[in-house]
């Protein structure tokens, strides 16, 4: 549905987006990750036709944004950053306008407005002026706006920003539900959100795409992925560590904690051909053979935040590196 091909955006002498390419198919929810100022919002603005890319092409549902902008934009629902709305309008008035601007008039418009008021839980405040609303409601009003025409493509810049935990939960459920038959791109700073709703994630840092994969794939690339955590009673710490280190495929085994409950060791796998061997069965077999008592044995899946930190540069360090 969405195909972005080597997008480049210069702002004056500053390169904001540097040759970013990706595609999103129907039924996919793509999470857009990256530090502040990495180019997430700029990319989304290019996808929705607000900013023209310096070079590169975008096609939405087969329509090129450049030659056939109106047809492409008609397929997209867009929730911009900070969810802008017209403050002096009422919620229904605003939604009616958004429907009309999208070519829905009369009965069609009223049906669409009622539908999104229901999906976004706006019923209690539908007649209020937008400027009197709380941030959460204002945000949901803007969210409602992008769902009016039931678009096959949704672009959402931080869809859960400024919502309370209950509202976040509702919005995530909504996105997941819609993800089944739409192509959705959302940007977020909340990594747990990626796990909760995204079928795939891309990481962008200083304008460059640095990773693209399912959340599980990305996690598996973090440093702790494949590590085995084991808690033993019985053996001396040194002896256990030496035995674990000697296992086939293990690179290191270190004592993480020692207490009355036992000693906790972390065994790291030795990556071969870029793949990390699964040490779980080998560790379990060793424990059984030595007759140690073991009350915890876990293979780490890896952590998204660890991976995120490894591939991006925090803005405090950006000066030196960039």
């Amino acid at each position: 549905m969405i195909a972005a091909n080597t997008l480049v955006k210069w702002f004056g002498a500053k390169l904001a987006v540097d040759a970013v390419s990706f595609t999103v198919a129907k039924g996919e929810v793509l999470g857009f990750l990256g530090p502040n100022g990495a180019g997430k919002s700029t990319t989304m603005r290019m996808l929705t036709g607000y900013l023209p890319p310096t070079s590169g092409t975008i096609s939405i549902g087969g329509h090129h944004l450049e030659d056939d902008g109106l047809a492409a934009r008609a397929l997209v629902g867009y929730l911009p950053e900070n969810a802008p709305v017209y403050p002096e309008m009422s919620v229904t008035g605003f939604l009616r306008f958004a429907a009309e601007a999208r070519g829905l008039w009369g009965k069609e418009r009223n049906l669409a407005v009622e539908r999104v008021i229901e999906t976004c839980f706006l019923e209690p405040i539908r007649r209020q002026t937008i400027e009197t609303l709380s941030k959460g409601y204002r945000h949901r009003t803007c969210l409602a706006q992008c769902l009016l025409h039931d678009p096959p493509v949704l672009v959402m810049d931080e869809p859960t920003d400024g919502l309370d935990p209950n509202q976040k939960h509702e919005v995530r459920n909504l996105i997941r539900r819609m993800g089944a038959d739409k192509a959705i791109i959302l940007s977020t700073h909340i990594l747990e959100e990626v796990d909760a709703v995204c079928s795939r994630a891309i990481v962008i840092d200083r304008g460059r795409l640095v990773a693209n994969g399912t959340p599980a794939e990305l996690r598996a690339r973090s440093a702790s992925a494949g590590q085995v955590r084991v808690r033993l009673q019985g053996p001396a710490a040194k002896e256990a560590a030496a035995a674990l280190r000697a296992l086939d495929g293990a690179a290191a085994a270190v004592v993480d904690a020692e207490s009355a409950a036992g000693i906790t060791l972390i065994v790291s796998p030795d990556p071969r051909d870029g793949r990390r061997p699964n040490l779980g069965p080998a560790v379990a077999a060793l424990v059984a053979a030595r007759h140690w008592t073991c009350d915890e044995l876990r293979v780490e899946e890896g952590r998204l935040d660890e991976f995120f930190r490894a591939v991006t540069v925090p803005d405090t360090k950006r000066e030196e590196k960039g």
Partner: peptide, 14 residues
């Protein structure tokens, strides 16, 4: 200033 320009110009209007 309000950011609604982004909303308006990404609607399927010229």
């Amino acid at each position: 200033k309000a950011g609604t320009l982004e909303l308006l110009l990404t609607m399927p209007l010229t």
